[in-house]
Amino acid sequence: MMERVVHAIQCIGCPIGCGGEVIVENGTVAEMSGFTCNKGLAYAAEEVVSPKRMVTTTVRVSGGGLALLPVVSATPVPKERIFDCLRLLRGVTVAAPVAEGTVVVSDALGLGVDFRAARDVSPLQ
C-alpha cells in the first residue's frame, strides 16, 4: 500500500521565510509547493528526510584577550546530533592566538563536519 504524507515546511534558508508543503510518498519526495527559490526547494526536500542545522557555539580560549571563541559548523549538522556536538565542543579549549577560519574540531564525531573559528582572538596583552 502506498504511504503518502504531507509535511508543512517553513523554509529557514533566508529571512523571507517561505512556507510550503512537501508530499512524501513511500519515503521519497513526490511533490513540493510554495517555495520560491532552488535553495528553498533543496532545504524543504532535505527537511522531511534528514533535517540538518548549522550549529554555532563557543569554546574556551586560553591566553587570549577573550574568554571564549565563537565557532561555527562548516556545513550543517544532522539535527539529532546537535547536542552531541555541543557536548564535544564544551570540552574543547584552544590556545590564543586564533585566526578566523581555523579548524577547531575536524570531522566532529565522524559526521564529516568541521567546526571553525568565527573570529580572530589575539593573545592577552
Binding site: 529571512p15 548549522m54 554555532t56 563557543t58 565563537p70 561555527v72 568565527a118 573570529r119
Partner: peptide, 25 residues
C-alpha cells in the same frame, strides 16, 4: 555583531551566511 555568534548574516551583502563576528570581521 561580536556577541551575535549565530549565523544568518550577510546573505545579501556577501551572498553567504556568516556569523555575527564573521560579518564584523
Amino acid at each position: 555583531l561580536q556577541q551575535c555568534i549565530h549565523n544568518g548574516f550577510g546573505l545579501r551583502r556577501f551572498e553567504e551566511e556568516l556569523t555575527g563576528p564573521g560579518y564584523a570581521h
